[in-house]
Amino acid sequence: MSRTLGPFAAVLRRDLLLAWRGRADVLVTLAFFVVVVCLFPFGVGAETNQLRSIAPGVLWVAALLATLLSLHRLFAQDHADGTLEQLLLSPEPTVLWVVAKIVAHWIATGMPLVLVAPALALLFDVEQGALGVLVLSLALGTPILALLGAVGAALTLGLRGGGMLLALLVLPLFVPVLIFGAGAVDSHLSGTGADAHILLLGGGLLGALALAPVACAAALRIAVE
């Protein structure tokens, strides 16, 4: 057991350590999220009812863009310095350490967004009862974004203009997550209950967790070749 978990634990520990040592990058993602969200009241005006109604969508779109911004970092450094080759030569299953990398990436970039989101929602005067739903929808949704994005990041690894291509590739895939994520908060606010949306996000997360790492591993093998 510990043998199989060896590379998983090693990659997870190393990537979290790297995120801590390079925390400026992590803070940039978080700052981007905060700034984008804060721009909206300037653009659409400070009318409270309007802000209240657009808040879930704004927070979700900003979280999605912040995730997109950080995705290219997922494999780029390891690809450039040869670590990716060594990982692919590991006798342990590739999927295992791919999941470790995505989990570490989400802890470093996705989780801070989830934690900051309620504070930003208060800026938009979202009622306090909906904050729990917002956090839950982001906590289930941002890992899906990370998993789908990782496939895109692996497919565009080492390409010229890869960043732009990555955005074109994964943004359409993010749309369902956005619909159900922002929809969860909206339906809670309108009184119909967010259960259906949350369950769909949960199911989506499980589906992405089952399929995305396999696709990602295959894409990485192609990228290194």
Partner: peptide
């Protein structure tokens, strides 16, 4: 499991 490959890039991360 029996292979040790060292490529052109030394597989070092600068922050470690």
């Amino acid at each position: 499991r029996t292979l040790l490959y060292l490529g052109h890039a030394p597989a070092l991360n600068d922050l470690l």
